[in-house]
């Protein structure tokens, strides 16, 4: 929370400091592709502001308390927002997560461990002697 308040404050100061700068020549605003518009778990405004808090809250409940199949869920986000082109929420400036996060320069930590592709299933190509020999 503190980080976000700080970010907003800095952002506001920056915005006030250069009110006359024209949009031309600046990094273009993100244009994420919304594959299934109007079906989100909360209004767009709220999602934009609070998606990280919602995910963080739910992740702790799911992981520590075993709460599954909830309205808010990272896999739910992916299921809906994965691009129809590459099946992922990552990959280019058009992909849902990457679009804004690249624009805002906010590091995406989720995908170090979570699967960014919808309907992904690891193919069972485990090493043949996995269980018995080194």
């Amino acid at each position: 929370m503190f980080k976000r308040v700080l970010a907003v404050m800095l952002f506001s100061i920056a915005a006030l400091a250069q009110p006359a700068v024209a949009d031309a020549g600046r990094v273009p605003k993100p244009t994420p592709t919304i594959e299934t518009p109007g079906q989100c778990v909360a209004p767009v405004e709220e999602m934009r502001r609070n998606h990280m808090e919602m995910l963080k809250h739910q992740r702790n409940r799911t992981m520590r308390m075993g709460e599954r199949d909830t309205k808010v869920s990272l896999n739910g986000c992916i299921q809906c927002h994965a691009s129809k082109i590459n099946g992922s929420v990552l990959g280019s400036r058009d992909n849902f997560c990457e679009a804004c996060h690249a624009y805002a320069a906010v590091k995406l930590d989720c995908w170090d461990c979570h699967q960014p592709k919808a309907n992904y299933k690891a193919t069972a190509s485990a090493p043949p002697t996995m269980g018995l020999k080194p």
Binding site: N50, Q58, R61, M65, G66, D69, V72
Partner: peptide, 13 residues
């Protein structure tokens, strides 16, 4: 908002 969102389905451990 989150408390509202958390009143979800499913059993807890």
């Amino acid at each position: 908002r989150l408390i509202e969102a958390a009143s979800a389905q499913g059993k807890l451990a």
